[in-house]
């Protein structure tokens, strides 16, 4: 149930992230969340999702500011800035994680589950929390659909119109951070970005309308979340993250091949049809040509006959 709402929420948010060409940002945010989680644990010594979320959000925001600062005040482009920040934060996170594991604190067992996610380790209260947060994310997206759409499509125009583009961008970013942080519990730090982006990319193949795409992305996300959790929970002791991501990826592959209009299969069909048409046209031209040659000869014969 938690995974369902979680997938739904991240699919919806992911659509905007993907369309704004910030797919990698989700990845950076997720990796950046790890030190936040570790610090939250080191400070309090308890494992509580609420606290971890707080830590993850703070360090996620810090990472975003880092990326912003790098791109603004140096010549480094965003992709490089993402790479730098992502690895630095993740490095710090892994160091801290190792330190915690060697600290002998009995409470620490299970913290490593945050790397790859273990939905089964969620408690009922965690499920409620994750569910409520996801629902809030979806509600905000529905209410501000118009604004988010314009800001994603044409920020310059939006700003000229007096829409506070910066505010909405920050809000979208904050929501992305929240979606990532909520997802970490189930999918893990390393792979949570996939849950954000893959459903959105898959949904893009099926539709040309933003609204439909977002709903579809939500459905795909929810589907992969549930499938991943069920498989990892019942079949074996597999971590949830990889299984969920594989579920999302298979949805994506199906979309790539079979989606009408943009899918590979329909493109291939169209090409074959077009080729046949062109060929048919070509044949008539050739035939006309032959006829022309024949009639020419006939003319010539007539003339020589004269």
């Amino acid at each position: 149930m938690g995974s369902l709402l979680l997938g739904l929420g991240s699919g919806v948010i992911g659509s905007f992230t993907f369309l704004r060409k910030q797919s990698l940002l989700g990845d950076a945010l997720a990796h950046a969340a790890l030190p936040g989680i570790c610090i939250a644990f080191m400070l309090t010594g308890v494992k509580s999702i609420g606290l971890f979320m707080l830590g993850a959000i703070v360090s996620g925001m810090l990472a975003t500011f880092g990326i912003h600062a790098i791109t603004r005040y140096s010549r480094i482009k965003q992709d490089a800035a993402l790479g730098i920040v992502l690895s630095v934060f993740f490095g710090i996170g892994v160091v801290m994680m190792t330190k915690i594991q060697h600290s002998g604190n009995g409470n620490q067992s299970g913290l490593d589950k945050y790397m790859f996610g273990q939905a089964a380790s969620m408690m009922l209260s965690d499920v409620y929390l994750v569910g409520i947060v996801s629902l809030i994310l979806i509600a905000v997206c529905t209410l501000l659909f118009k604004e988010f759409k314009l800001v994603s499509f044409d920020p310059g125009f939006a700003r000229g119109m007096g829409i506070k583009v910066g505010l909405f961008e920050q809000l979208l970013l904050l929501m992305t951070v929240i979606a990532v942080v909520v997802g970490i519990q189930a999918v893990g730090v390393v792979l949570v970005a996939a849950l954000l982006i893959t459903p959105a990319v898959a949904a893009r193949y099926w539709t040309y309308a933003l609204g439909v795409m977002i709903v579809l992305a939500g459905v795909f996300g929810a589907l992969s979340g549930v499938t991943g959790t069920l498989i990892s929970g019942t079949l074996s002791n597999l971590p949830t993250g990889p299984v969920t991501v594989l579920a999302a990826t298979s949805l994506f592959l199906v979309s790539v091949v079979f989606a009408p209009g943009r899918g590979l299969a329909s493109k291939l069909l169209r090409r074959i049809r077009q080729r046949n048409e062109v060929r048919r046209g070509f044949e008539t031209v050739v035939m006309d040509g032959e006829r022309a040659v024949i009639s020419n000869r006939a003319h010539a014969a007539e003339r020589s006959g004269d």
Binding site: L19, K21, K149, S152, F153, D154, R204, T207, Y208, L210
Partner: peptide, 10 residues
């Protein structure tokens, strides 16, 4: 050129 014309909308 300032926008992405592949954006899903009509």
């Amino acid at each position: 050129e300032s926008v992405d014309w592949d954006f899903p909308t009509n």
